[in-house]
Simulated assay, not measured.
Amino acid sequence: MLQRVTKGCAALALGLASMSASADVFTYTATLSGAIEEPPNASPGTGTVRVDFDTDNHLLTINTTFSGLLGPTTAAHIHCCTAVPETGTAGVATELPTFTGFPIGVTSGTYSHTFDTTLAATWNPSFVTSFGGGTIAGAEAAFLAGLDAGTAYLNLHTEFAPGGEIRGFLQPVPEPATFALLALGAPVVLLAARRRRGKQ
């Protein structure tokens, strides 16, 4: 019985892993606050962000919601890459002077946009030079590495805090297949433990 369950789980795990590998969309999230700014500030503003990076199709989708800012917005960017994860500051990685279509002059709002990461306009030229080795492909790779390492952050700049009123370091969200593999392994471990106890 245990052998059949183990083989079935292994087959399902392989299927899930192959489905996951065929669609390379990496998801990152963060909670934004003034306490995370460098230096920290007392802004009551809050926000959330989700970033989906489809490396197969070279698409970067940014969805954010924010409210309670002390000053009207002046710009929003993703900065990358800090020397230490979840701390410090870094230059702007994404387009300048702000995200295309980002709501400016407001203290609350939402934003959703998909960028083509093969276009030079998506990137800050300094980031392409400093981190990407002068190529867009290099910038994409460096940006993905920064996201994975927790050294990239979304920053909302306002009149109250021109250097950034609220920000949050983006963290990877485990892929659904990872959760599925963990869930599949649990019954196998439980069955093995049960069987071992029965033999004692």
Rank of each mutant, 00 (worst) to 15 (best):
residue 40 P to T: 05
residue 79 H to D: 03
residue 72 P to M: 10
residue 69 L to Q: 02
residue 82 T to L: 04
residue 90 A to W: 07
residue 57 N to M: 06
residue 65 T to V: 06
residue 78 I to Y: 15
residue 62 I to Q: 00
residue 44 P to N: 13
residue 56 D to S: 07
residue 43 S to L: 03
residue 101 G to L: 09
residue 105 G to V: 09
residue 80 C to V: 15
residue 84 V to N: 05
residue 101 G to H: 04
residue 55 T to C: 02
residue 70 L to A: 05
residue 61 T to I: 08
residue 70 L to I: 09
residue 79 H to I: 15
residue 47 G to H: 01
residue 101 G to A: 06
residue 106 V to L: 08
residue 87 T to Q: 01
residue 50 R to V: 12
residue 66 F to Q: 07
residue 91 G to L: 12
residue 47 G to C: 04
residue 98 T to D: 12
residue 70 L to D: 12
residue 95 E to Y: 11
residue 91 G to N: 10
residue 105 G to A: 05
residue 67 S to F: 06
residue 41 N to P: 03
residue 84 V to I: 06
residue 52 D to A: 14
residue 40 P to F: 01
residue 77 H to M: 00
residue 106 V to F: 02
residue 46 T to P: 00
residue 50 R to D: 14
residue 73 T to N: 00
residue 61 T to D: 10
residue 107 T to D: 03
residue 85 P to D: 05
residue 107 T to W: 04
residue 74 T to A: 07
residue 91 G to T: 09
residue 104 I to A: 02
residue 54 D to Y: 03
residue 83 A to N: 12
residue 76 A to D: 09
residue 41 N to H: 11
residue 106 V to M: 02
residue 86 E to G: 13
residue 40 P to H: 13
residue 71 G to V: 12
residue 98 T to P: 00
residue 83 A to R: 08
residue 55 T to M: 02
residue 103 P to A: 10
residue 85 P to A: 13
residue 46 T to E: 12
residue 105 G to H: 01
residue 84 V to M: 13
residue 71 G to F: 10
residue 83 A to G: 15
residue 78 I to W: 04
residue 53 F to A: 06
residue 105 G to S: 08
residue 88 G to R: 02
residue 74 T to L: 07
residue 42 A to L: 15
residue 44 P to V: 13
residue 101 G to C: 05
residue 106 V to E: 05
residue 103 P to W: 11
residue 67 S to C: 11
residue 95 E to M: 03
residue 103 P to H: 06
residue 75 A to S: 13
residue 83 A to C: 13
residue 79 H to M: 11
residue 65 T to Y: 09
residue 90 A to K: 12
residue 47 G to K: 11
residue 51 V to G: 00
residue 89 T to R: 14
residue 77 H to Y: 06
residue 93 A to L: 01
